[in-house]
Simulated assay, not measured.
Amino acid sequence: MFDKFLEGNQYYDYPSFEVAVFSLLLALVLSTSIAYIYRFTNGDEFYSKSFFQAMVLSALVTSMIMMAVGNNLAVGFGIIGAVAIIRFRTNIQNPRNVIFIFAALSVGIASGVHGYAVGIAGTIIFCITAILLYWSPAGGKMSHKFEVICQSSDHELIQEVKAYLIARSKSFDELELRKRTELNNRYEYLIFLEDESHILEIFEYLQSLEGISDVRIIKKPIPEQL
C-alpha cells in the first residue's frame, strides 16, 4: 500500500480519508525536517520560534488547500479570493528565511497533489544541501557577541591586548574611545566567538596583566532577523 502511495495517485478532487491523512502526515514530517534543519544551520544566536512553527503549519495548510481544490476551478478561484482579503504584514528581511518558508510550502504542495516521491526526494536533497552550505566557507555558524571594556595608560600594552583579542576571536571591532580619566584611557572592543566558553580564558588573561584595570566583559544579543 505504501508503494502505491509513493508511485503517486491520479489527481482527483476529493481524496479518500486514508489518502488525506497520509498526505497531511507526510507534509508534517517533511516540513518538520526542514524546520529543524533551519534551526541547526541558523547562523544567528537566536532564532524565531514563531517562524519555526510557521514553517511546519504552512505545509499542512498548503496540503489541505491543494487537496480541497482538486480539479475544481471554481473552488480554486474562491480560495484565491479568500486569501486575497488576508493582509500579511510580516517583513522577512533575510533571503535565506524566504527560501526555507518556500521549501515548507513546496512540500505541502507536493503532498497535497499526491506527489509523494517528489516531496520526499526534494526534502532530502534540500536538507543535505543546506547542511553542506552550513559547513562550507560560505556558511554562517553561530557566533557569540561580547563587549570587552578595560582601562590602561600603557599604549603598548593596549596594542598587545588588541593583538590577543584579534587572534582569539572570529571577528574583532574596536569602538571609539568614550571616556578619559586623569590617569587611564577607557577602551572598548566588540568580539565574536564561536565557542562561548573561551570568554572566561580571555577575562582571566586581561585580569592578569599589570597595567590593565577595570576589566569588564558584557555579552551582547545578536539581533534576530526574520
Rank of each mutant, 00 (worst) to 15 (best):
L30T: 00
I124T: 08
L175T: 08
M55W: 02
K162A: 13
R89C: 08
I202P: 08
V215L: 07
N97A: 04
L183H: 15
I79D: 08
H198A: 15
M66N: 11
R89L: 14
R216L: 11
S152Q: 10
R96G: 10
L28S: 06
A138L: 03
S33G: 04
L105M: 13
F40E: 04
A27D: 01
G122K: 13
G108L: 04
I158R: 13
S58H: 05
I92M: 14
L175M: 13
I37C: 02
H144V: 00
V161L: 12
Q225T: 00
N94L: 09
A84R: 10
P137Q: 03
A84S: 15
G211Y: 07
I86Q: 11
V19C: 04
V148A: 08
I222M: 02
V161C: 13
E160P: 05
I37A: 01
W135Y: 09
P95F: 06
E160D: 13
A138T: 01
S111R: 08
P95Y: 06
D214Q: 11
S23Q: 04
V29K: 01
L165T: 06
S106N: 05
G119C: 04
F146V: 04
L60Q: 14
V98W: 03
L193M: 09
E210I: 09
L60G: 11
G211I: 03
P223Y: 01
D154S: 13
E45I: 02
K170E: 12
S63A: 15
K219N: 06
V56P: 04
L157I: 07
S48E: 01
